[in-house]
Every structure is written in C-alpha cells, then in structure tokens.
Design a protein around this nucleic acid. Sequence first.
DNA 1: GCTTTGTGCCAC
DNA 2: AAACGTGGCACAAAGC
Length: 542
Amino acid sequence: MNRVLTESMRPEVLAVVRDGERDAPAPRWTWDDTNRWYPRLLNEGVRVERAHDLRLAHAILRRSPLTARTPFASAPPGPWDALEPTPAGPPPLVPGIGTRPDGLFDLGEVAAPAPDLDVVAEATAQEEAVAASADPGRLRFLLAAESAGALVAAELHHTGLPWRADVHDAILTERLGPRPPLGQRPARLEALAARIRELVDAPPTLNPDSHPALLKALQYAGVGVKSLSKWELLEVDHPVVAPLLEYKKLSRLLTANGWNWLDTWVRDGRFRAEYVVGGVVTGRWSSVGGGALQLPKDVRRAVVADPGWTFVVADVAQLEPRVLAAMSGDEAMAAAGRGGDMYAGIVASGAVATRDLAKVGMLGAMYGGTTGASAQVMPRLARTFPRAIALVEEAARAGERGEVVSTWLGRGSPLPGSDWDRVQAGAYDADDGARARSYTRSFGRFTRNFVVQGTAAEWALAWLASARRRLWELGEGPLEARPHLAFFLHDEVVVHTPAALAGDVARELRDAAAEAGRLLFGDIPVEFPLTVATVESYADAK
DNA sequence: GCTTTGTGCCAC
DNA sequence: AAACGTGGCACAAAGC
C-alpha cells in the first residue's frame, strides 16, 4: 500500500501518481518532502489521497519518547536530520522589478534534488522504528496526520486565499490617505507625526519611528514613561498619548499589511501563504513570508469570496482546555465543557465566580501564570478539576527537572538548551542561584504548555485531514472547483465553497471535529463544538 | 556596508 | 514594566 517515489521516477511521476490514484484504496505515496513533489502534481490537476512525508516523520521519530529505545533514535545525525523545509512555491516577485531573487525556480521545477538521500532505506528504517516503539498505533496516527497536514498545506498554497486587492486598497486609503510616492509617509501618518511633535515641543526632525529619540522627547515633555509600549502609554494622562497610539496603530497597518505587502503577496486575486508544517516545536504550523498566521482582524475585509461562492469559517471553542480535559480524563472538566461554552460551564461547576475568571484561570493553568487573578483561582481550579491540573503540573515539574515531555500522540519536547547545564552548574552565589531558578521555572512553563498546545495541534491535524477528505467528496472536478480549505489558523479554518454547498460544508466540518476527537481520544465524553459562520467576507466571521 | 539585536505588536 | 505559552515581521540602533 506504501509506494515510494524515488528521484529516478521524477520524469514519469505524473503518470504514475495519476494512475495509482485510480486504485481503491489509493496508495500512500512515500516521498522525501511533500513540497518537492506535490505542488507540481497539483498544477497538473493531480490530487493525492494519502502520503507519508519522510522528512517530517523523521523529525518526529528522532525525538519521540516512544522511540527513545530504538536504534533509529540513537543513531548519529545524518542527512535526514539536516533537511530544511522546501517551500511550496517560488518566492514572491519583488514589487516594481518583476524578477525573482534567484534562479532556483527558473526551470519550473519545485526544488533542486537532494541526491544523498536514500528514500527506500529511510522508509524501511522508519517503519522498523515505529514497529519497535512503545506505541506503534499512536505513532502511526501521528505520522499519518502530520503527512496529511503537509498535503493540506501544499493545497492551501495551491488554491490560495481569495483576496480583493481593490478592497484592501480602499481600506488603506480610508485609514491612511491615498498611497504616497515611494519613501513618503501617507498623509494621515504625516499629520499625526506633526501633531505629536507639536504636543511634546519637538523639532520637525523628530522621527516618531525612532524609539530613543521619541522616548527622550516624551520625557522632556514630562510624560513619565520608560518605554513606548501601548500598555504603559495607556496608564499616563497626557494629550500626546491619543495621537501617539493612533500613529502606532496606523504605522503598524502600513508596514505590516500596507501597499507593499499587497504588491508582494497578492497575485491574481489570491494570497498564497507559505505554511511550514511542524514549524513550531509543539507541532503547530508556522508560516514564512506575508505573516499568514497574523492577518490582523481589520484587513480581513479584503478576504472576499468569488462570485457565486462563499466562505464557511469554523473555529473550535476553547480547544486547549478541552484537549486538556480529554488527555487527563478529567470527568468534571469534561462535564463543564458540555453545552458549548466551557468557561460558562466552569462557572456553573462552582469553581469560580465569573466567566472571565474561568478564562484567565484556565489560561494561567496552561501557561504557568504565577501572578494576579489567574494565580488566585488556581487552588479552586485544582480542587474542582484535580486530574486536569495535575497533568499540567506534572509536565511543569518534568521540565524543571530537565526532562522530555510528550504530547498525546508522542511528539517529544526538545531538551533544554546547552546553557542549561552551565546555568545550573554556575549557581554559586545568590544572583546566579536566582538566575538558575528563573531559567528552570521558565523551562517548566514551556513543558507545561507543550503538552497541551502540542496535543491541540494534533487534534487540529486530525480535523484538517478529515475535513480535507470530506470536502473533496462534496464536489467534482479539480480541487479549486470543489469546496476546499482556503486558510488555517491553529484552531480555525476558512473553507471556500460554491454558495449552494455551504450547509453541507458546515455539517462536514462539525462531523470532522467529532471524528478528530474520537480518533485521538476514543469514546470519551469530551465534545469539540465549532462556531461556524457562512460569510461573504472573512471579517464578518466574528 | 552588512549583519545582528532590541523593541513592539499582530495572530493563536 | 512584566506578568504568562508558541510564533513572524518591520524598523532603528548597535555591532562587526
């Protein structure tokens, strides 16, 4: 059922895969890196059902506690450990120049071959490592989910997120003024800069983007702040605060998602994000270029469905606490989650008085909060939800001992950095001792969060994989003609679909969420309810 | 001159 | 002036 694609098969890969996908069940294509094969297949209209990404699987198997006692894990580093992720597409065109930074993609190929990789041997070694592991079932599931994620990421890049450049430009013009010539501030920003200088009695040469200069000017004017951060400015009463905060807000919009961003990242009505599957240590995705995972709420108005199409936007309500309830088998917390709003359920359980307290308390439990309201309600949460709180506390203690922790499916946390031993060993005097303790606690907060964030990422992979399969079945023809995933954000998806199918899409996304919960945790009473909205623009989803 | 670091803010 | 986890990105300043 596994079919390995080697470099020598590259010339006929289109025909091979197209043909193989007619089998039932379809083969699981095993390749060195999804992005070295799949983008080209997608461009030719070939979609694959299943894959095994050797690079991603290798990274997991090398570090999983489940494989710790296998030769695979103890082998010295080899070429598979040195692999970098391959981008799904070419780098963006440089605006105004129209050429690419280098010639890597000139031949229409996806990436240069990596000749020293023996994919057949690696596939065999990985299968042996899984078979010899402490829990082959979990690892097989994790590797399949990770690889399905790689397929989704390549497809997301292929289809792209619908993006109306004209709407985006209108947003920018409305808030900043018309697009200025290169090197000039937009009118609205320039006016705010002048107003700021006036209010702090600064010369026209003061650049509000220069932190030291601006901070000094503020201090001369008697604005007692030690930094320029928003939270601190909000605490002082001075006429310059309002225009300064407005300047910062608009400046952020201009530099992060202004006309330059639009020129660089939007082509032919689509924003094509470059996702990095497993790019975060916890297993979350990261992205590179375009800030795909930080699209500000106020530019989402430019994300508009094609004519006759619509978006179905779905996100999981309180994913991480639900995952914690499931993995710890905490019945009381599971009960608090029934009915849709887990934080309301926590209030109903009597543990805390308000929804806000429930929220900051749970976030503090998962992040390691030690101050304020979140720390105050911890004892009550621990009494009401003993198993859930015990799980994160144990993960924190393990981290403080410098140990590895694991997600539900077996993704291992990294060991502390090389400075761990140095810091611990150097703890001679009081200062060094305090530094060592601070470092230790910090690593405990990391492992505490790792188990929850990482397992939530596994749930999300399972959800994506199921949704991908279900959406495909809803339509006909090539991927972009069917309902398809258009955007993914940790616990949220945007599906682009013919409007008539929106109801079917919503149902399938809910069913996929239930399926993900069952596949990960079995028949336990933890629900994963979705908030679903059918909208013409992404901005209207929430 | 180029690269690295610090700051601050966006997302979850 | 951070607290309390994971990231990316842009700009200015500092470092080489």
